[in-house]
Design a binder for these strands. Structure first.
Lengths: 391, 391
DNA sequence: TTAACTTTGTCTATATAATAAACAAAGTTA
DNA sequence: TAACTTTGTTTATTATATAGACAAAGTTAA
């Protein structure tokens, strides 16, 4: 059955429009909302009064007069509820409590000793319980739990494959829903990072953005026409497994010459070991390499440049395919920005189709290590506001 | 200014919903439309009577009774207007008159002797004038002219670059608008082909489809979430210029190892000449190669297989990135289907990520040489119905 | 200081369109 | 032939947006 349009839908849509105008342009007066949205002043008044009843909007003091009666300024109430977001990494959990404005109000990081799911899951639920105790009292309480995982995830929130965690077919969403009576969101870490960067990383939300999460592996989150693109089954973005070297290195995925075999943190480390720049059993090899580069070790600097060039190759491909406005590089490799950035820029500049470079901006994640948690929070917040609207 | 929602918008949306239901499921009764859409019977009656006034819908005779009063069947009137669509190739013009149902009712093909724009443009306008004389009389007449061009085209309908035609910065849309007082649509040939295949090539319209137009060059049209994806400036889909061989063959575009340097018709011909399978100055070299393959020339058959493998590499990349439901191969190379198809299938099967293959279907263009014209017609028809709706 | 003007926000009358329900028309079934 | 079904129209009702009036609270210029 298709969606029909009637007066209820009209009201919902307009209410959403008013609320998002207030969120984006807070503080703002009723009159300005009416002008910006094109809605009638009376309509705005009535919708705002409902939003105030729902405690999603607050009146602050009077604003500056524009030559007449002083306006009553409206604020979005970011403290009406809180999101609980987790970045589940290969060897850590980063948890955060995030308000409706997307600001982190509490964070905590824990190391994981094992990737065994039977170890990780109880650890995770205990961590969530601990975080819940830190959440301030509020009208709507904890509006959702979001977990970002470096994995292929179905629309149903099932982890189909997480190669670096060695997980397969794990119904994480279902299992968490059984433990907590709160909406659960599970997403791919790169998708979450892309979403976080889009929502909170820019003055003006970009419409077309490619976010390359370069860590142990490479995942790509795509914002197309302002929306996260998921593909048919939710598996889109496995650009780490596009072939950039025909008959190249074999990859876990079964393909040859995959991008992530040349441009990821793992590729960097493998190559460094191969070239005897670090020991095979080096602890924190990535940090060590950055240290060496900082000490002007030329061989290491050259290696970073090579990795940068390979990153450039893959990014050039995505640029030619998508014609994005922004390309954002995130995850672990942002710590090597100064060593890889020039090579990336040079390669793209020389090889991407000229037109695509016109309005293109390339940057490193502005939210740094928080792209994923803030993205997961954005998903839960959006879900909450949507449910609120339809209530 | 944002779009506000009021009763007028509701009516427009519902009218569109009713019309598209009738288009999709013609013939259908008012009662069925109400059931399918979820709208009230009275609402449907009133909207249908307006559509009948606009001659977009017709009543046909009574249908079969379902145990009660016999329904009056409604038909979409595909003859209320006609689209004029042109496929502008490197050495030909394919023109078609297409009704609102997307059916070709007249077609004509002309060879081009030169790619010089000053020669082609007058030729094109005369051709259009000639086609216009063949259009039957109807309520809305010629509702639009659509031209598909193998080129990078801006949102404003300017041809920025057509390498194979050697055109640059040509405001084709503007120039045609000056000649004809009819809505003009200019689109990239691969995008048009993708749209045509989506609209008319399947029983059920696919939501996620990648259409690879493999001719002299390679262009990719992407249907994402049921919509054609254009990118920031309308340049998306230049997947032909993704690197598949690091430090490989140089390409016109400035990049190295581009896909289309290994998997296009041009690549096939260049390689065939190199291997002395055909003469350097062979006329219609592609047809000649197919002939040779049909004669069981093993060297030529091997070459086709190699090309097929390279096509498979690029398609695997797009599959891993997009997780599409359908991959459709179109343009010239469909004539070599039997020689390249097994190699393409084998490569994808072996190298694409397993999950992505679950619901994936790979096929050759069902509209054959008409993907582009029918896609361009679909653009004009959609534009017409949209304008009609807002009138 | 004051009158005229502006801006803000609320309230009221009005218009529009969807819905539910009643109803008529035209068929089928037992 | 009577009872039931399905189709399509009509009518009363309801929800919501809009225009415009109006009051409140400010600024500006004489």
């Amino acid at each position: 059955m298709n969606r029909t349009w009637n007066q209820y839908v009209v009201k919902q849509e307009n209410k959403t429009l008013v609320l998002s105008t207030i969120i984006d342009q807070t503080p703002i007066s009723r009159a300005s909302v009416a002008q910006v949205t094109g809605l009638n002043k009376g309509t705005v008044s009535s919708l705002v009064s409902e939003l105030i009843d729902e405690e999603l909007v607050e009146e602050s003091g009077p604003g500056e007069s524009n030559g007449g009666r002083r306006p009553v300024m409206l604020l979005f109430n970011g403290k009406a509820g809180y999101s609980l977001a987790i970045d589940l990494g290969v060897d850590y959990l980063l948890g955060a409590i995030i308000d409706l404005n997307g600001n982190i109000i509490y964070e905590e990081k824990r190391q994981l000793q094992s990737t065994d799911f039977d170890v990780v899951f109880p650890f995770l639920t205990r961590f969530i319980n601990h975080l819940m105790e830190q959440v301030p009292k509020s009208r709507y309480g904890i509006i959702g739990i979001g977990v970002g995982v470096p994995a292929v995830i179905s629309h149903q929130g099932e982890i189909l494959l997480a190669p670096n965690l060695n997980w397969k077919k794990i119904k994480l969403k279902e299992q968490l829903e059984q433990q907590f009576n709160i909406p659960i969101y599970i997403e791919n870490e790169a998708n979450a990072g892309a979403y976080g960067e889009m929502r909170y990383g820019f003055e003006q939300m970009p419409k077309h953005m490619v976010y390359a999460s370069i860590g142990i592996g490479i995942g790509v989150g795509m914002i197309l026409d302002g929306q996260l693109y998921n593909g048919l089954n939710g598996f889109a973005g496995e650009a780490g497994h596009m072939t950039v070297v025909k008959d190249g290195r074999t990859c876990r995925c079964g393909n040859l010459g995959c991008w992530e075999r040349y441009a990821s943190e793992q590729a960097l480390i493998d190559e460094a070991v191969d070239r005897q720049l670090i020991e095979h059993n080096q602890v924190e090899p990535f940090q060590k390499l950055i240290e060496l580069a900082n000490q002007q070790n030329q061989a290491v600097i050259n290696l970073f440049e090579e990795i940068g060039t390979y990153i450039g190759i893959g990014l050039t491909n995505t640029i030619n395919i998508f014609n994005p406005e922004h390309v954002v590089i995130g995850n672990q490799l942002i710590d090597a920005e100064q060593w890889i950035s020039p090579a990336i820029g040079a390669y793209i500049n020389k090889h991407a189709i000229g037109f695509h470079q016109n309005d293109l901006k390339i940057s490193f994640a502005k939210l740094q290590a928080y792209s994923t948690v803030r993205g997961m929070a954005a998903f839960t917040i959006e879900g909450f506001l949507l449910k609120q609207r339809n209530a």
